[in-house]
């Protein structure tokens, strides 16, 4: 998918044909190698939330860890840039929340964890002192600040991990499913915080999630991965308008639909039961505006009493499902065309 808007801001980092294949340690298991990331080329500008989506095993976590330097790539490169757009020689300071694990010392308290990692990170001590307090109270952990992490609830532990990622004000944040296990309030707080960091402080955030709603509300740009490949990458609004169809959803009494139906048979539609009795919900998939007028004429001719009519805008979830479905059928077609086996 091509990007119609030119991004003028400087890049935060650039992935260039980045690939990662995991080979088993045992030599005679090498045929079981897994290519987790394949030829990933991506340019993420500074000051945005970039959300990486994809089904399980798509390679999101691997991409995050490659960015963080926790995994070395098999091929390709990662370049980081400073705020003036100059190439950095080394990886800048990165704050990260990694998937599923708490990534903190369980036997230390949240406060002690913040101090320990702040110290070894080389963050000025006065900053650690100020920020540790601020972060813990921001995440409602002030009264748990001194109890050991293992006695905290799962969601609280996740919040400690997020606080730790924010410590020291890193320019780049990598968040792998950060809201996993968080309650509604905390998830909201984090959304707001992320927008604040990006808009007011110019931070760059890469976030993976399976919660489409989260991605749709915080992300500026969205990348969709599948089988290690980046199969779509664009602004959220572009993705949605690309898939926007002339879909109209009409609800009417069952009897009226029976009369309209023969006339409408030239149009493509799906019908289903409404929540109310004796009512049908019909979704018309129209080609263009003329189709819309034609539909209206049919309805008018039959004098159908409509209960409701609305245009259907696709959600990010619809777009996601559509894109991954298309990719899958394409992959299958190619495989079949090449005489290959379909997995």
């Amino acid at each position: 998918m091509s990007d119609s808007t030119v991004t003028t801001s400087a890049p935060a980092f650039e992935l260039s044909r980045l690939s990662k294949t995991f080979y088993p340690l045992i030599p005679w298991h090498r045929h079981r190698a897994v290519t987790a990331v394949s030829e990933l080329t991506l340019n993420v500008p500074r000051g945005i939330v970039f959300s990486l989506l994809g089904p399980n095993g798509a390679g999101k976590t691997t991409t995050i860890k490659l960015l963080a330097g926790l995994i070395l790539p098999t091929q390709g490169s990662i370049s980081f840039f400073d705020e003036k757009g100059r190439l950095l020689a080394r990886r800048p300071r990165i704050g990260a929340v990694l998937e599923g694990s708490r990534n903190v010392y369980w036997r230390l308290s949240p406060m002690e964890n913040l101090y320990y990692f702040g110290e070894i990170n080389g963050i000025p001590r006065s900053e650690i002192r100020r920020q540790a307090k601020e972060l813990l109270s921001m995440f409602d952990l002030a009264d748990k600040a001194n109890s050991s992490v293992q006695t905290l609830s799962r969601g609280m532990q996740q919040k400690v991990a997020i606080a730790l990622a924010l410590l020291g004000d890193p320019d780049l944040l990598l968040l792998d499913e950060p809201t996993l296990g968080l309650d509604v309030e905390s998830a909201r707080l984090i959304k707001r915080r992320l927008r604040h960091l990006v808009e007011e402080r110019g931070k760059t955030i890469v976030l993976t999630t399976h919660q489409m709603e989260l991605a749709a509300t915080v992300a500026d740009r969205i990348g969709i991965m599948q089988e290690g490949r980046l199969i779509a990458e664009d602004k959220l609004s572009n993705l949605i308008s690309f898939f926007r169809k002339q879909d109209y959803e009409v609800e009417m009494p069952r009897a009226s639909w029976k009369e309209v139906r023969p006339a409408a048979s030239a149009l493509s539609f799906d019908e289903e039961e409404c929540d109310e009795e004796d009512c049908v919900r019909v979704t018309f998939h129209l080609e263009d505006t003329n189709d819309f007028y034609r539909l209206m004429t049919h309805l008018k001719e039959q004098g159908a009493p409509l209960r409701s009519i609305r245009q259907v805008t696709p959600t990010l979830e619809d777009v996601f499902i559509e894109i991954t479905r298309r990719y899958r059928t394409n992959a299958t077609d190619t495989a079949q065309a090449q005489g290959g086996e379909v997995k």
Binding site: A68, G69, L70, I94, S101, N103, V104, Y105, G122
Partner: peptide, 18 residues
Amino acid sequence: SQGVLEQIFLNYPRYLLL
């Protein structure tokens, strides 16, 4: 196993020195 190792590498990559 607790993921602390990754946190350490994020904060101080010269692990041997540590």
